[in-house]
Every structure is written in C-alpha cells, then in structure tokens.
C-alpha cells in the first residue's frame, strides 16, 4: 500500500493556484482602494457629498451624481424586475423544455454579453429620440433596465430551478393550480435568489459609464432631478468627467468619487449576501 495518496501533489498545487488567484483578485481591489483613498481621502467630507459640481475643484461635490445614481438604481429596478421576473417565470414554468425556450435561453445569454455601449446606442435611438423622452432620468433608467434585463432573467430562472420539485408536487397534490403553486410556494422560495442576482446585476450597472455617456446624460447638473423627465447625472459619468479635466484638484475629486462609488457597490453586495444568508436559514433549517 502506498503511504500517501497518489494525487497529493496535484492536490497541493491546485490549492496553491487557487490561493494565488485569490491574492491577485483581492490585491488588485485593495491596491485600487488604497490608491483612491490616498488621492481622494482629503476630499471625502460632508461638503463633498452635499455640493453640486463647480468649476472650482475644492467647491465641487458629488450630490447630484450620488442622488442621480440612487434614483437611477431604483427606477432601473422598478422597470427591470417585473419584466425580468415575469419573462423568467414564463420561460421556466410555462414553456418548460420546449425547443423555443432553448433558443430564447441562448439568445438571452448572448444579450447578457453584449457590450454596454451598444445598449447606450439603443437607448439613445429608442428612448431619447423615438419615444421623445430626451436625456432624462427615465430614458437612462430604461436603458439601464435593458442592460440588466438579461441578467435578471438568467438569475431568476436559476433561482426558480433551485426550488425542489417536491415542493411543487406537494402543492399540486393539494389541488393547487399552477399559478397558485408559483405564487404561494415557488416565488417566495426563489425570491432571495432572484433578489441577490438582481442586486448584483444592478450593482454592475451602476458602475457603467458607457451607456449613459452614449445616450448623452449630462455631467454638469447643479440641481437634483425632480421628475422622471428631468435631466440627471450619475457617479460614473461625474468621475469620468473629473478624470478628463487637466487640473489636479479634479483628479482628487475623481478619486474621492471612486471611493463613494465603491462604497455604494459594497453596500449593495453586502445586502445581496445578507438576503441570501437569511433565505438559506429558512430553507435548510
């Protein structure tokens, strides 16, 4: 009998490689954060968070961009969630294993991989011009909704698939209809998965500058949007704008803006983790 398992070395090597990958990933993130903090830490104060853009870097703030991003996020979720969840429910629970569902599935996966700038162009043509919404908050949110829709659909379908078929059968065996089964049993169990997937999709979307710049969102907004059709700005656009200015003061602002954006992302991802863990407690007691 050999005194050790033949794959021991492979095992070690694999562990080392995985660790290396983790260090690279975390290291990059840390370096980015430290760099941003060093450059912009001095600008991170209440005044920065509550001021509007200005020509003087030390007076400029991020208020309109931060509020714009939050509004954008809420509106995007409000548009993308009902449509995405509805589409996924239909595909997963009603169409089933039909070949058409496979075709649609592949196409949705492809849509999820389309560069975000393409969605910006689509939004510009469809919402800004054809529907006459202008460069408004609503047009931005609809564009972002298109961007996250495929991911929401994919995440929802995956969440629906994790609901054990024994639960569905239990419901059907009591004479529940398909809709009752979905509404009372399947959706509540899938909801945490749907929410985590959607939050992650949204948090990716709020970091996107390209589609908003393409559809022509403004950068210099000295007020908070007061209606769906008001012009708006958002964090990544504001950061992009500051980075492209020659004055070093604006670069510090950009760095501080990056820290704020990262903080928003972190909060959202934390929320996703929290939702998932609470749900697991319920299902696997």
């Amino acid at each position: 009998m050999p005194d050790r398992h033949p794959s021991k070395i492979v095992e070690r090597l694999f562990k080392l490689m995985a660790l290396g990958a983790l260090v690279i990933a975390l290291g990059t993130l840390t370096a980015l954060l430290v760099d941003a903090l060093l450059d912009g830490g001095g600008r991170l104060n209440w005044q920065f968070l509550t001021s509007f853009p200005s020509r003087k870097p030390e007076q400029a703030g991020i208020a309109s961009a931060l509020v714009g991003t939050i509004y954008l996020m809420i509106l995007t979720a409000a548009c993308a969630l009902p449509i995405g969840v509805g589409a996924a429910l239909y595909l997963e629970e009603y169409v089933g294993k039909h070949w058409l569902a496979r075709v649609i599935e592949v196409n949705i996966a492809n849509l999820a991989g389309v560069p975000s700038i393409i969605y910006g162009l689509l939004g510009l043509e469809l919402f800004v011009r054809m529907m006459g919404l202008g460069r408004s908050l609503l047009a931005g949110a609809l564009t972002m909704a298109l961007l996250v829709l495929p991911i929401v659909i994919i995440a929802t379908r995956e969440a629906l698939r994790t609901v054990p078929s024994s639960i569905r059968e239990a419901s059907y065996a009591l004479g529940a209809s398909r809709w009752q089964t979905i509404w009372h049993q399947v959706l509540p169990l899938a909801l945490p998965g749907i929410l985590t997937g959607s939050i992650l999709a949204l948090s990716r979307a709020i970091g996107e500058a390209a589609p908003l710049i393409t559809m022509g969102a403004l950068t210099y907004i000295a007020f908070l949007p007061d209606s769906l059709l008001a012009p708006f700005t958002a964090l990544p656009i504001q950061i992009f704008n500051w980075v492209s200015r020659p004055q070093p003061g604006f670069h510090a602002n950009a760095a501080a803006g990056i820290v704020v954006l990262l903080a928003v992302l972190l909060i959202m991802n934390g929320l996703a983790v929290y939702v998932r863990q609470r749900a697991q407690k319920r299902l696997y007691l």
Partner: peptide
C-alpha cells in the same frame, strides 16, 4: 397524496 420523502413547505 403523501410522498416518499416528507415534503412540508418551508
């Protein structure tokens, strides 16, 4: 109907 594996709703 009652199934093989107990399947109460969570």
């Amino acid at each position: 109907m009652v199934f093989q594996k107990p399947n109460p709703f969570p």
